[in-house]
Write a protein that binds this DNA or RNA. Sequence first.
RNA 1: GCCGACGUAGCUCAGCUGGUAGAGCACUUCACUCGUAAUGAAGGGGUCCCCGGUUCGAGUCCGGGCGUCGGCUCCA
Length: 667
Amino acid sequence: MSATETLTVTLPDGKALELPAGATGADAAAAIGPGLARAALAVEVGNGAIEGRGEGEGVREVRDLARPLPDGARIGILTSRSEGSEPLALIRHDTAHVLAAAVMELYPGVKISIGPAIENGFYYDFEFPPDVSVTEADFPKIEERMRAHVKAAETFVREDISAAEARARFVEERQDYKVELIDDLVVAAREGGGAPLETVSLYTNGPFTDLCRGPHAPSTKTIGAFKLQSVAGAYWRGDSARQMLTRIYGTAFFTKAELEEHLERLEQARARDHRKLGRELELFQFSDLSPGAPFWKPAGMAVWNALTELWREQNRVRGYREVKTPILYDVELFKQSGHWDTYRENMYFTEVEERPMGLKPMNCPAHIQIYKDRRHSHRDLPVRYSEAGLVHRHEPSGVLHGLLRVRHITQDDAHIFCTEEQVQEEVVQCLRFGFYIYELFGFEPRLELSTRPEKRIGSEAMWDRAEGALEGALRAEGLDYELNPGDGAFYGPKIDLHMKDSIGRSWQLGTVQLDYSMPERFELAYTGADNAEHRPVMIHRALLGSFERFIGILIEHYAGELPLWLAPLQAIVLPVSERFSEYGATVCETLRGHGLRVELDDRGESIGRKIRDAELRKAPYMLVVGEREAGDGTVSVRRRGAGDNGGTVTLDEIAERLLADAVRRSA
RNA sequence: GCCGACGUAGCUCAGCUGGUAGAGCACUUCACUCGUAAUGAAGGGGUCCCCGGUUCGAGUCCGGGCGUCGGCUCCA
């Protein structure tokens, strides 16, 4: 055979496979084996680089099995058992098309927009006719229709047609969103400076055709199990000025068992929802009378105070001095700080004796007042003020979410006023402080460096120095970080600290921001060694983010089972009957005398009942006392969730153990 | 703020097409005095989110408001 009649591809194991010219991914799979041919979903194509490195490495694309393979490509056949998220993403995207197909059939006149796979499933956005509203109650009907498409094992057929032809087709079908997408593709190709857009791809399964880049599995039959999950509003193209579409969320898996396992996980995540646990454990409550503002109950306050102790202790150790500043100010302050111009919409205002006043949305202008109350020498710097600062922000009603998004926010705030030379070292110390705290909870930090945005103040030289200082700090600590070019604040670059919790969710907690704007606006100064006035740099720093949010995250991270040092109820004394209440009271008082949070359950209930209730309250230690213990001054120890295997120890021993645990702050 | 759903006892929820409310848990009382995840019995408890409308009659239907939930946008 001559070269033009064959093509060669390289398989993942490095072996070359020779195929007839024009062979497809499906042909390759068939050439490898009939089992693979049946299991194949798509083909991964990487160009060049037969040896697996060099040119082309990293350029890879997942393609339909039916597309011809390029000569010399490295390929891998994708099946449901392939590693990574791609196989699932593929069938989820397939399922999105099936959803759209079903919806088109059930709701004539519906306009379709886009339907991608997302992290745990997929969605499709629709514009329903004005008189139609779709709710979760309609899901069974839609799912039934979808099942028919899956059962029919419809082939996904790709056609590449000219943009003009596709446009005409969607104009004809009155699919305005598809027309807009095509127009934008054409414009993007033109503005990208490359070749003009020649064709767009359409995918058809059964009666349904969609504008789609692909890829898709060969047919709908690989969708093993799917479920529609929720319906929500979503702006067309994520733009709040544009049409609100109806988004239907769903998920899909290769097998029913996997789907059920996933739904089970969702159920478990709901069980650790901090709003549910907050109510059950009586940590906090919300009231219609003050939306977005938690009421801390005694148990929640115990957690708050334990966290505050950590915060206060560590700030002191690290050279911060705690301050406390008002929450209500003459609006002049916010005009000077700039918040009036940029943030007024989200602030709370009132009038006191005809004087317009506002609640602070940030603590920095307040700390600046303290800094300005005296003159500073370069010898004084850095000046570090910390405050559990209460700020109010009028968050839009739709975004409030338990403790995680509130209007009444207690930030673990700090501001450092320092010289430019000190910036890097101060940032290093902030990062170390953050890591110290996160490690206590087993959070794994991830860092992001955000640099100069388009709209900014200050000279290029200033930004060079500021970004250099942050980068220098990250490098000096040997830390990995992600770069977010252009994502900094207008007044300076920042490092954000993100964490992953026990179930893999990511949260942004801390932030370290350089600020060259506030010192300017408030004309901050220090006297240098040269006896001249200089501007200090200001570092804004929060590590927990806010006490409210951090506690919310902790509750979910620990599923309510807080470590002893944070637990509102550290131990509960359980007399086996009321006859031993007196001894129980002695035990309880002794432990309380050591500063531990202990209660006595002297209700006339059975010991089984008391243990059950104590477990539900998630007390780390249950101390059972009865005739034996009262006789020899001991307690029978039961650990939360561990059953009766803690042994029997003397009162002194248990006190010592609990105290050591609390002081160590062990997780 | 936007879209949608929801709002019934402290909690979780039931209440069909309009006829003045119900369960379990929790709570109270009594009995039991118990050894490692629910002892039994009796009892109390409701402006059915708020305002207005339709109706002989509204928890139920309609309109408005507030709040919550799921998303979207936002988080300087």
